[in-house]
Measured scan of single mutants.
Amino acid sequence: ENVVSAPMPGKVLRVLVRVGDRVRVGQGLLVLEAMKMENEIPSPRDGVVKRILVKEGEIDDTGQPLIELG
């Protein structure tokens, strides 16, 4: 899985990584606010952040691509 998608609709509060960062499975990639709760979205695998497809403050839909890993 190279693309991390939104598991729920919500607002992107914080992006915790930058392009080029090495990430490990379970590491937080970004924080979504949904139903007044903050949810940290973890990396599904080890890899390198290739692209960040959303910006802080954006509203996303379920299934929307958020981050691409390489």
Rank of each mutant, 00 (worst) to 15 (best):
L32N: 00
M37C: 11
A34F: 15
E68H: 09
V23C: 06
A34L: 11
E40F: 12
V54R: 05
E58R: 10
Q64S: 11
V17L: 02
G20W: 05
E68P: 03
V17H: 01
R24T: 12
P7W: 08
P65I: 11
I52D: 01
G70H: 14
G63P: 04
G28H: 08
T62R: 12
V48K: 05
I59C: 12
G28Y: 09
I41D: 01
L69S: 02
E40C: 14
N2A: 11
L16V: 02
E33L: 15
R51I: 07
P9W: 10
G57Q: 06
R45I: 15
V23I: 08
M8H: 12
K55Y: 13
L66P: 02
V48M: 09
V54C: 14
P7T: 09
R51F: 08
V49L: 02
L29H: 00
N39T: 14
L16Y: 05
R14E: 03
L16A: 00
N39F: 15
I67G: 01
K36C: 15
R22F: 14
A6K: 03
P65E: 06
R22W: 14
E58Y: 13
G57S: 05
S5Y: 15
E38T: 10
P42Q: 13
E1L: 13
P9E: 06
R18G: 08
V15D: 00
L69F: 09
L69K: 01
D21M: 10
K55W: 13
G57V: 05
V54F: 08
V12T: 03
L29E: 00
G57C: 08
E68M: 11
E56F: 09
R24F: 12
G28L: 14
V23Y: 03
R18K: 13
L69R: 01
N39Q: 14
G20T: 04
G57P: 04
D60I: 15
E33D: 06
Q27L: 05
R18Y: 06
R22C: 14
E58A: 10
I52V: 10
K11A: 04
D60K: 15
G63K: 07
G70W: 15
G70Q: 14
V25F: 12
G20C: 12
T62G: 09
S43R: 02
V25A: 13
G63Y: 07
G20H: 06
E56S: 09
P7N: 08
V19G: 02
E33M: 12
Q27T: 07
E40M: 14
G28M: 11
G28R: 08
G20K: 04
V4A: 04
I41N: 03
G47K: 01
G47V: 02
P44V: 04
V48H: 08
R24I: 12
R22A: 11
R45D: 04
L13R: 05
G26I: 04
K55G: 09
L30W: 03
T62H: 09
R22H: 14
K11G: 02
G63M: 08
I59D: 09
N2C: 15
V54H: 04
G70C: 15
K55N: 10
N2Y: 15
E38I: 12
V4C: 06
G10N: 03
M37K: 12
I59Y: 14
L16N: 03
V19K: 07
N39P: 02
D61V: 14
N2Q: 10
M35H: 13
N39R: 14
G10R: 04
K36H: 14
V49C: 05
V49E: 02
I41P: 02
L30Y: 06
S5W: 13
R51M: 09
I52S: 01
V31F: 03
V17Y: 00
G26D: 03
K50I: 14
V23W: 04
K55C: 12
V15L: 12
G47E: 01
L16S: 01
P7G: 09
D60M: 15
N2G: 10
E68Y: 11
I41K: 01
R24M: 10
G47H: 02
K11Q: 06
I59M: 12
V54Y: 05
E33R: 08
V25I: 12
E38P: 09
V3R: 06
D60F: 15
E33V: 11
D21W: 09
G28T: 15
R45A: 10
D21C: 10
P65K: 06
V3I: 14
M8T: 09
M8W: 15
V3E: 05
R24L: 10
K36G: 15
I52F: 03
E58D: 14
G57D: 06
L30R: 00
E33F: 14
P65N: 06
G47M: 04
L13P: 00
G47T: 03
E58M: 12
R14Q: 05
L16W: 00
T62Q: 12
V48Y: 14
N39L: 15
E58H: 11
E33K: 07
V12F: 00
L13I: 12
M37Q: 12
P9N: 09
I67W: 02
N2S: 13
L32K: 01
L30S: 00
I67Q: 01
P42I: 13
V19E: 10
D46K: 07
D46V: 06
L66V: 05
E68T: 10
M8Q: 08
V49A: 02
K36N: 15
G70T: 14
A6V: 05
D21Q: 14
V3S: 07
M35L: 12
D21G: 05
V19D: 03
D21F: 09
D21V: 07
Q64H: 13
V3D: 04
D61M: 13
G57F: 06
R18L: 08
R14P: 00
M35D: 14
L16K: 04
D46E: 10
Q27Y: 04
V15W: 11
V49S: 01
R18D: 07
D61E: 14
R18Q: 11
V31L: 07
E38Y: 09
V25W: 09
V31Y: 03
G20L: 06
R22S: 11
R51E: 06
E38A: 10
M8G: 09
V15P: 00
S43T: 04
V19A: 07
R22D: 08
R51Q: 10
V31D: 00
P44Q: 04
V12R: 02
Q64A: 13
K50N: 09
K50R: 12
R24P: 02
P42V: 14
S5K: 14
V54T: 10
E1K: 12
Q27F: 07
D46G: 08
L53H: 08
L53Y: 14
E1M: 13
V48E: 06
E33W: 15
E68I: 15
V19W: 04
V23D: 01
L29V: 07
R45K: 11
E40Y: 12
E58S: 10
P44G: 04
M35C: 13
I52G: 01
L16D: 00
L29M: 06
T62A: 14
A34V: 14
E58K: 09
G20S: 04
R22Q: 11
R45Q: 09
V19Y: 03
L32W: 11
R22Y: 14
V23S: 02
Q64F: 10
G20F: 05
I52W: 03
E40W: 12
V17Q: 01
V15M: 07
V12H: 00
Q27K: 04
S43A: 11
E58L: 10
L30C: 05
L16Q: 01
R18C: 11
E56A: 11
P65Q: 06
D60Y: 15
E40H: 09
T62F: 13
M8N: 07
A6W: 08
P44F: 05
V17P: 00
K50V: 14
K36Q: 14
D46H: 08
V31K: 03
K50A: 10
D21L: 08
A6T: 06
R45Y: 13
M35F: 14
G63W: 07
V49Q: 01
V12Y: 00
P44M: 05
L53W: 13
I67V: 10
P9S: 11
L69W: 04
T62E: 13
G47I: 03
V3L: 12
N2K: 08
A6P: 03
E68S: 06
V54N: 02
R14T: 05
L30A: 04
L30P: 00
N2L: 14
G70P: 02
D21N: 05
E56P: 12
I67N: 01
V48N: 04
P7F: 07
L69I: 12
S43D: 01
P9I: 08
E56Y: 09
I59Q: 10
R24K: 13
I52K: 02
E68K: 05
L32F: 15
I41Y: 03
R14G: 02
K11F: 09
V3M: 13
G20Q: 03
R51D: 05
T62D: 07
N39D: 04
E1D: 13
G63C: 10
Q27E: 07
R14A: 06
E38V: 11
K36M: 14
G20I: 03
K55F: 12
K55I: 12
N39M: 15
G70S: 13
L66H: 02
N39G: 05
K11N: 04
M8K: 07
S5A: 12
P44Y: 04
R14N: 03
L29C: 06
P42T: 14
G28A: 14
V25R: 14
G10A: 06
M35W: 12
M8A: 09
K36A: 13
V12Q: 00
T62S: 11
V23R: 02
P42H: 10
G57I: 05
M37Y: 08
V54E: 02
E1S: 13
V31A: 02
D46R: 07
V31Q: 01
D60L: 15
M8C: 12
V4K: 03
V54S: 05
A6L: 07
E58G: 06
V19F: 04
G28P: 15
T62W: 11
R45T: 10
N2I: 14
G70D: 14
R18E: 10
A34P: 02
Q64T: 14
D60G: 15
G63V: 05
S43F: 02
V15R: 01
M37S: 10
G26C: 08
Q27C: 07
L30M: 09
A34T: 13
M35E: 13
K36Y: 12
